[in-house]
Design a protein around this nucleic acid. Sequence first.
DNA 1: TTTTTTACTAACCTCTTGGTAAGTAAGTCG
DNA 2: CGACTTACTTACCAAGAGGTTAGTAAAAAA
Lengths: 111, 111
Amino acid sequence: MDAKISTQKSIGTKHSILDKTLEIIRGKWRLHIIYQIGTEVRRYGELRRMIPQVSEKVLIQELKSLMNLGVIEKKIYNEVPPRVEYALTSKGRQVLPILLKLTTVGEVFLK
Amino acid sequence: MDAKISTQKSIGTKHSILDKTLEIIRGKWRLHIIYQIGTEVRRYGELRRMIPQVSEKVLIQELKSLMNLGVIEKKIYNEVPPRVEYALTSKGRQVLPILLKLTTVGEVFLK
DNA sequence: TTTTTTACTAACCTCTTGGTAAGTAAGTCG
DNA sequence: CGACTTACTTACCAAGAGGTTAGTAAAAAA
């Protein structure tokens, strides 16, 4: 029985993996943001225009969180007016296909 | 340009599809619950024991929401003490593989 | 000189989500 | 009879998520 446990992930580990996933995708705007940055590098203002329902404050707040989680990264150009670009990190690019497939969930349940 | 739009989903549609997805998976416990019911039919008490961190109230509340969304269904047996079993609907079973793959997101970002 | 642009920050407030604690029905078991 | 079991409900609260509004820097354009 101990052998069985050692060959698979413990419940605790599975739990924390799921929680880490939720940390990333939970929240009203995270997936919207990731979807927009996923295809190509985006400036802050672009994102605002592409997801107009989100407030400025929350958009920046979520971009920060996604950066802290290592999903996206930002590049600041020393120009005036300022210019900032957001892109997926390599880890972000790694999980993008899975996240994109999530739309099929919505498709199934909208029918 | 109109032709282009008619051959692909409009932004509005994509948006509502994503929102429907989020309606299902957002929330602290939804995925935990789906993961447990996914493999086999579960009684309420079983779920409580398998996800001990969730409170009774919230577990029932989330089960109800998932039922209203058409993800799970419940079967009540006329016994005393009562017996209730929860199972995925066919739509639920349809999207389970995608939802299970979400753990790889957590795996990538835990490293 | 005033306005515009871009990417923010800060104060404040509301609404939603989730948690706690207690209670209920209706039989079985000791 | 009283305790136990299961699947709930209800009332009340605390925390968190998200929204609104106003303000900032710094240069270029009108």
